[in-house]
Design a protein around this nucleic acid. Sequence first.
DNA 1: AAAATAAGTTAGGTTAGCCTAAAAAACTGT
DNA 2: ACAGTTTTTTAGGCTAACCTAACTTATTTT
Lengths: 227, 227
Amino acid sequence: MYICIVDISLTEENYIKAIFSINASNKGEGASTNELSEQLNNKAGSVTDMLKRLAEKKLIHYQKYKSVSLSSAGEKLAIGIVRKHRLWEVFLMEKLHFKWDEVHDIAEELEHIKSDELVLRLDAFLGKPRFDPHGDPIPDAKGHLFLPHAKPLSHFARIGTYTFLGVAEHSKLFLQHLTSLGLKIGDTIKVLDINAFDHSLMVKINRNEHQFFSEAVSSKLLVDIKK
Amino acid sequence: MYICIVDISLTEENYIKAIFSINASNKGEGASTNELSEQLNNKAGSVTDMLKRLAEKKLIHYQKYKSVSLSSAGEKLAIGIVRKHRLWEVFLMEKLHFKWDEVHDIAEELEHIKSDELVLRLDAFLGKPRFDPHGDPIPDAKGHLFLPHAKPLSHFARIGTYTFLGVAEHSKLFLQHLTSLGLKIGDTIKVLDINAFDHSLMVKINRNEHQFFSEAVSSKLLVDIKK
DNA sequence: AAAATAAGTTAGGTTAGCCTAAAAAACTGT
DNA sequence: ACAGTTTTTTAGGCTAACCTAACTTATTTT
């Protein structure tokens, strides 16, 4: 059991979060200096600087010229930030009626508020939600993260009926596009036909008219086969 | 009509807020370097540094060796921060059921979240409250601040019946003390007797047993004569 | 395996926001 | 009005977090 003696700056928290998310999308291969520099919008030299500091604080495992990964303390911290981010997103949507493409930027600020009690009470106030407005799972108070086995719609590559569970891209533009397609988390997507050339799909959302999803879209829609 | 081009750091916001609150408690005489250094817990030299920067950003009126005051842009900013602080305090108490001595520190962080839309929606969600949990008035969306004419209980110095409207001190210790006295905003305080030596008061809160308020307490209770 | 390219690190510099210590200006009391 | 005290500013330093440019290590190509 660790207690956090040193306190962690907003900047450090952002690095930890970035390492966590890159590591996740790399299936645990860690994060490279360049990937971090890209994600955080600063130069590679600055990243190396910070990695040394984070290593001294025992938040990451770092060896020169190798990709970094989080220590258990770092991971605990990262999961805490993700939990806060996603809870605040739920708050912004459910209680303040923001749209799902508007909540990310504000949650990005709110996730750094430091009060364990606040997180506990917010969680309870929201009814202990398990998913955020984009379908991402919310870690519980113990830092346990349930990973749903949703996969990109494009991955199935076959005719069938699917449930839309989440998105693999969180940009405003993409989310607004989904809104204009009339697609919401939980919707049923029926794949009627697959184009052999560009892999675009002819689909029906719920009981509406059929329409087309390009692969750019279908690869970012996380779904499961409908039971 | 001004649009804020330069962006303002968290530290700068805290200076602006400090100038605003000192100026208010000084009846518009402005804030001195020493007062700021005391309130912000840093040294006078650092304050002078920052005052120069704030003057360059046109947020304050600053002349060497004189006390500073806010420009109209600075005041607008300060009122916006106060509004956010007090709205978040209401949220923390009304929705998350924090106690009134717990909300200040968390609101101190939340007040820096930058989203006008968020403030508007939070305000609406809370039912456009006019006062925060300590009885302080909440500026409206236009930056209009209604100043109630409550005065310290000690100021009246006479037997009578008063309504408890707010506190002039926000420390945890003081608020907890009031809680242990059983005193809440809106309560009726009946002053039965005034001690000529130490100005302590014999009072009745609502219809409870009588008890004593030292002047240290009665000078921090903002009341109005009960109608 | 050597050369070319990509990735990562180091060194030296900047700015914001703090510090201490010394100097300057503004008050205060007689 | 002037000597002493207090307040404020200045000067010179520090650290976190960034930058650029040069250099080193790793990887890929031929």
